[in-house]
């Protein structure tokens, strides 16, 4: 029986009168890849914002590896092991590709103000080791040759990849990907699909994936959760979902 990584019960948030998410429950196991789909404005990104502490839930609870995460700050949740990417890419555009990844290592770095200013041996050693680690990680995404590029100058598809690389660099157990294939051409999407499969094997990480590209979702997700108007309307295996009348109705607009 694989261990549960992320578990939410009855999770919800209301913005004033609008219940953006309500009664959301999910149980993601080790190394599982779960899809989260739903029409525009259904509340998918809001679920991610709840899981990463950007919004504080107004109801319900969620746990990571058995630890309660409610009310924790974003950086504390990242430290606990949830990392994400954004629907609208949020890279550090004016920093290099390498630096984008290095930032994610910062939380685990030991050097302090004094050793950094005095440039002690330990400072250089750590800098060298994280740069090595960053290069290895970039190599997984075939970005090692662009380490010195300004992140904002990368082609779109590679920006998406770099964002995933940066999320992985936080050493997360749970990865939340918000529409990683949005705006990609079919070749880039195919590449991304391969990439997601590689990192699952290599990092044995659980993934929750929001995606509008149905072929991608049906292709790689083991399980799918469908939400509409902030509530779960269906969940199950990809083939079950694709035949579910409620899902079809939600997508075709009744």
């Amino acid at each position: 029986m694989p261990e549960t990584i992320l578990k939410a019960t009855n999770l919800g948030i209301a913005f004033g009168g609008l219940r953006a998410v309500h009664g959301f429950a999910i149980d993601i196991k080790e190394c599982e890849l779960v899809g989260l789909i739903g029409p525009n404005g259904a509340g998918k990104t809001t679920v991610f914002n709840l899981f990463t502490g950007v919004y504080k839930p107004t109801e319900g609870t969620f746990y990571l590896g058995g630890h309660l995460m409610n009310g924790k700050k974003t950086h504390e949740i990242v430290a606990a092991g949830i990392a994400r990417t954004f629907q609208n890419i949020r890279l550090f555009k004016k920093m290099t590709v390498m630096e984008n990844v290095l930032i994610a290592f910062t939380k685990d770095m030991k050097s302090n103000l004094l050793s950094s200013i005095l440039r002690l041996g330990s400072f250089w050693k750590e800098e060298e080791s994280i740069r090595q680690k960053a290069l290895e990680l970039l190599a997984v995404f075939n970005l090692q040759d662009k380490a010195d590029w300004m992140a904002g100058n990368l082609p779109y598809g590679q920006q998406r990849k770099l964002e995933i690389a940066r999320a992985l660099a936080t050493n997360a157990k749970m990865l939340l990907l918000d529409e990683p294939a949005a705006g990609m051409n079919p070749t880039e999407t195919a590449e991304l699909l391969e990439c997601i499969n590689t990192i699952r094997k290599k990092f044995s990480i659980s993934i929750l994936l929001i995606e509008h590209d149905m072929s991608l979702v049906m292709n790689i997700c083991e399980r799918i959760v469908v939400i509409d108007y902030g509530e779960i309307i269906a969940q199950g295996l990809p083939q079950e979902i694709s035949h579910d009348p409620k899902v079809i109705a939600a997508y075709l607009g009744e």
Binding site: K93, K94, K107
Partner: peptide
């Protein structure tokens, strides 16, 4: 500098 570039991305990166 990361915080200057993007506050939300910085906290989401730990």
């Amino acid at each position: 500098m990361a915080i200057r570039d993007d506050d939300i991305a910085s906290s989401s990166t730990g």
